[in-house]
Design a protein around this nucleic acid. Structure first.
Lengths: 138, 138
DNA sequence: GTATCAAATGCAAATGGTTTGCATTTGAGT
DNA sequence: ACTCAAATGCAAACCATTTGCATTTGATAC
């Protein structure tokens, strides 16, 4: 927990059990978690934990860029992951919902071109590829 | 209306006033519309129009690929447009919400590479760039 | 350590986009 | 015109997320 405590302090956020546990949970998850995933994970070990605390914590953590959220097409809930995880794009299986992270990114030059063309200052982007994973192609 | 009627018939959908009007509205909109946008547009001229009809119609129209929907990050409502509009990506202003359509697409080669690398059959993708439009950069 | 105060939390209720159940109407083929 | 599945209106349900408010808890000052 040492590390997470320092993360929070560096971000000028109070160190609370909820936040420490959320960071821990996200850090040890492989892939994305929803607010409810986190809640279910922590509920058994933290008494009187409230879902709204999860939401409010996630909001704070995102605001200081400790975590990031994405919302994938045709999924209504937001998904969260640690922000220091590498910039990633996604392969999303339309059948089973499996999400594969891709760390290649072909966007940089494109963003630069589009920026100057439209006088638009691009600060971030999302790129998600949809289709069928190996197992679901049968 | 002739055209829209034919579209529906070709798609094996019943020709109803709601569907004709939704197609007309989307066809004459510049940019995306939400279900509610469409509802507000049509409500004055169609008596007893119900929002759920809009939703159900949009669902049907999307199923037969007459229209397409996207949901942009940090917007909770789905946005709809005619499907025959060109494949487009988006420049989304984080300040004013303005959406600029881009018809260049740098993804094709990338998708191909990723496909073979992950044995994933890519069928579609989304690419959205976020940042600040010219007017909001001051 | 103790006092202090803003920030964080729990709980319940509200929100808002979307979906659904059900009775009624309507389009399309006969 | 007749028939029946599909489409619709309406109200209620859903569900992820947000909010109001009273209470608790960190962080800082003493």
């Amino acid at each position: 927990m040492k590390t997470y405590k320092r993360w929070l302090q560096n971000a000028n956020l109070k160190v609370t059990p909820a936040r420490l546990n959320i960071l821990y949970t996200l850090d040890h998850a492989n892939g994305f978690l929803t607010a409810e995933d986190i809640y279910n994970e922590l509920k058994p070990t933290i008494e009187h934990l409230s879902l709204s605390t999860i939401y409010r914590s996630l909001e704070q953590l995102e605001k200081v860029h400790l975590i990031e959220s994405v919302s994938l097409e045709n999924k209504k809930e937001a998904q969260y992951e640690l922000a220091h995880s590498k910039h990633a794009h996604h392969l999303i299986c339309l059948t089973c919902g499996k999400v594969i992270h891709i760390h290649d990114c072909p966007i940089h030059d494109f963003a630069k071109a589009v920026s100057s063309q439209h006088h638009f200052k691009v600060t971030s982007h999302t790129l998600d590829l949809y289709g069928y994973c190996e197992a679901c192609q049968t």
